[in-house]
Design a protein around this nucleic acid. Sequence first.
RNA 1: GCGGGUGUCGCCAAGUGGUUAAGGCCCCGGAUUGUGGUUCCGGUAUUCAUGGGUUCGAUCCCCAUUACCCGCCCCA
Length: 411
Amino acid sequence: MIKAQRGTKDILNDEIPTWQWILENAKNVFQNAGFSEIKTPIFEATELFQRGVGDSTDIVNKEMYTFSVGGADKNSSSITLRPENTAGVVRAYIEHNLNRQSPPQKFWYFGPMFRYERPQAGRQRQFHQIGVEMFGINEPAADAEVILSAVEFLKSIGLGNLEVELNSLGCPKCKNDYRNSIKEVLAPYLDDMCDDCKMRYEKNPLRMLDCKNENCQKIFEKEEVKKVIFNDYICDECKTHFNTLLSYLDELNIKYQRNKLLVRGLDYYNRTVFEIKSSALGSQSAVCGGGRYDGLVEMLGGVPTPAVGFAMGVERLFSLVEKKEVSKLDYYIVSTNTKEALKLAQKLRSQNKKVEFDMQGRKFSKQLEKASKCANYAVILGEDEIEKGFYSVKDLNCGEQRKIENFSDLL
RNA sequence: GCGGGUGUCGCCAAGUGGUUAAGGCCCCGGAUUGUGGUUCCGGUAUUCAUGGGUUCGAUCCCCAUUACCCGCCCCA
């Protein structure tokens, strides 16, 4: 038997109502905040992710679905199934010269992403993200706007009480100063740290800070190291940006926690980074992750444009959310006259009613039994009804049956 | 990539080295040839993830593979 590939799954009718409900809420909340939906391709040039997501990230290094397609020139024909969607949206922003429109440009998206990882609770190889990207605004109001819509969306699906964690990485300049002082203070301990951290020390020292290795954690606990980590290294401008954002969040009554160790694994972030977590999820606790990426548009060849965004894992949301039931039919047509049943179904459906009937011409009691399981009302269309031109409508919740003369009274 | 656990019908789930693999739900049919959701009766796994091995004999023991789950890592 051919089975679904490892880390992928079929979403069947019992889960569909909940998925649709999550999506409806996303659409409502984000559209009300002025975000318009954007649909970008599922695969892109491999180079887009190498440059956009970052060569030093795990995502690019070991988790991408990359294919060589077409001709002999391998490089020009290397494509990758998107592991995330920020790079793709940025690419579209640049390609369509959206910087020529008046800012802000605000987008939300939903779609499958692909990462070649070991499947686990809350982690699949094909998974879905809902996300938001906003371009063109430097002011902290943009950060607030983005975090607000994330929180409002979560609230709309009943997850209003999740923890928001925040940090500021600073701008490229202060980020760089910070990076250097971290390297300096950690240099004497480098030999005692894990192999990953030794790598990160060279490529992306900030990522060392969220290392889970016990030894490394101990080193971060040392007084002189702590002093550097918790030192407010960011420049005045970045500080003002961050503090203004915090004051906005206070006004909005959005609860947050400052987490100085929050760094995030994608290279493009600067200034604000945030995560929203749920302790109910096990080790894959992040529901939402995002931040500011002011340098990415330029890095991918566009004119310098500030930007903020986030992405959420829909499967993780799904597991937290209250499940929705499949909605009942308005009518189930009970009739052994298939032709009449078909015609009535057509008429009712054209009036936007949810209607089904028995296509096998089964016996009356079977049809009614079926109706009682899946519909609110049964329309009985027997010989009498057809001959004399009326409908017998039975309320399947209370058992009451009425005679209805005109089609319009059915509705 | 590393470590641990699990794998019996669509779903839950008992079971044992030995001629027929419990039960419940769902589903299908009948009692009831135009009135359901209750009740009663009946049906549905030549087969216990797959491939080998041990054995006179294996769903139950061993090995491998695979899938899923959990943890590490990473992230949404």
